[in-house]
Simulated scan of single mutants.
Amino acid sequence: MNLFKKHSIVYLAAFLMAFGQIACSRTETGETAMTSDQAFEDYRSHVTAFEQDVNRGWDSTTTDANAQMEQWRTDYDTRRNAVAQYEGEFDERRRQEYEELQTRYNNAWNTREQQYNTWRQNNQSAGMSTVDMSMMDETKVSSFSSARDIREAYEAFVAHVEANKNNYTNDDWKVVENYWNELDDRKNALQSQLTDKDKWEIAKAKTKYITMKNASKAGNTAGNVGSNLKETGKDVKGGVKDAGKAVGNSAEKAGKAVGNTAEKAANKVENVIDDDKN
């Protein structure tokens, strides 16, 4: 009897442990599904709220705009990273909505950057860069570890350049080019992970950037040519003026020389007449 009770207790304990594991497994599965839904809902709500804030315009009472811009970017990255880990579980409907939300956010961010740049132009000293260059931090590039990361980085980069190309200083363009080179190197390291769609979107981003960069160089060259022509015009004008002075001086000297010669000749004639009279 004791032996039977002993075995019964062992079997009961084993059963309870197995049941507990199954229950935990089910709970974890349910929690995972809830976490995925919650992360997506949080991402959706954040994008919607950010759009609404952008539509209200720039808050002119902001005391530290640079820190605010960085905070907005950090808040978005936190929510995007939280939902990105579940991308593989998305059905087609959710995947499409996720892409739409990313596009909506990028459009809203471009508008926010324009608002920020306008604010800086009106509130900061002339000659300083009026563009928020915080996203062009080369040290962040090495953290891109997936095809999604690198593709989104290219798209965000092009969006930034397109929104700010007219306000970049020469130093800003140097930062842009350095970041671009780092991004390209990182893309090459992740080349094997890229899908055909990733490669296509990155190729489009490259084309847009090169076009904008070349247009900027052409604009700078045209400006230099205009300045050179202006300076050349000054030189020509100055040369003509100097030449006129030289001709005037030569004519004056020639006139004086002729006058002196005539005066000397008259004196000689007068002297000859006086001699004849004597």
Rank of each mutant, 00 (worst) to 15 (best):
Ser129Pro: 07
Met34Trp: 06
Gln71Gly: 01
Gly259Phe: 04
Ile273Cys: 06
Glu138Ile: 15
Tyr98Ala: 09
Arg112Gln: 10
Leu194Trp: 11
Asp235Asn: 03
Thr32Val: 11
Glu152Leu: 05
Gln193Lys: 14
Glu177Gln: 12
Tyr179Met: 04
Tyr168Trp: 12
Thr29His: 14
Trp72Asn: 07
Arg26Asn: 13
Met136Gln: 09
Thr61Arg: 14
Glu89Asn: 12
Lys213Pro: 00
Asp172Thr: 04
Arg73Glu: 07
Thr207Phe: 05
Val247Ala: 10
Ser146Gln: 06
Met1Ser: 15
Thr103Phe: 03
Ile150Ala: 05
Thr118His: 14
Lys140Phe: 01
Tyr76Asp: 00
Asn224Trp: 12
Ala65Lys: 14
Val258Ser: 11
Asn249Val: 01
Val54Tyr: 03
Gly57Val: 04
Ser192Thr: 15
Asn107Gln: 03
Gln102Asn: 06
Leu194Arg: 14
Gly226Val: 11
Asn224Ser: 12
Ala13Met: 09
Asp198Phe: 08
Trp180Val: 03
Arg186Asp: 05
Ala205Lys: 08
Asp132Trp: 08
Lys217Trp: 12
Asn164Pro: 05
Trp72Cys: 00
Ala215Asn: 10
Glu113Tyr: 06
Val269Asn: 10
Ala65Cys: 01
Leu16Tyr: 11
Thr29Gly: 12
Lys5Gln: 06
Asn267Tyr: 08
Met34Tyr: 09
Arg56Lys: 13
Val54Arg: 02
Ser125Leu: 07
Trp58Pro: 02
Asn271Lys: 15
Ala189Gln: 15
Glu177Thr: 03
Arg56Glu: 15
Asn55Gln: 13
Glu28Trp: 12
Tyr154Val: 00
Lys204Met: 09
Gln102Trp: 04
Ser125Asn: 04
Ala82Cys: 04
Glu177Asn: 14
Thr78Arg: 00
Thr62Gly: 08
Gln71Ala: 08
Ser145Asn: 14
Ser250Met: 01
Phe4Trp: 15
Gly57Pro: 06
Ala82Phe: 01
Arg93Gly: 15
Val175Gly: 01
Trp173Tyr: 04
Lys208Met: 00
Ala126Cys: 02
Ala84Arg: 08
Val161Asn: 00
Val10Met: 07
Lys208Asn: 11
His7Lys: 13
Glu99Arg: 02
Ile210Pro: 00
Glu177Ala: 06
Asp75Pro: 00
Met128Tyr: 07
Glu162Arg: 08
Ser125Gly: 05
Asp172Arg: 06
Glu155Lys: 02
Gly248Gln: 05
Ala126Arg: 09
Met69Phe: 15
Arg120Gln: 09
Asn260Arg: 06
Asp198Tyr: 06
Glu162Thr: 07
Gly223Tyr: 13
Glu31Ala: 11
Glu41His: 15
Leu183Glu: 07
Ser36Leu: 09
Glu201Asn: 07
Lys140Glu: 05
Ala159Tyr: 11
Glu152Tyr: 02
Leu194Ser: 10
Leu194Lys: 10
Ile273His: 12
Gln96Asp: 13
Thr211Glu: 04
Thr111Arg: 08
Gly223Ala: 13
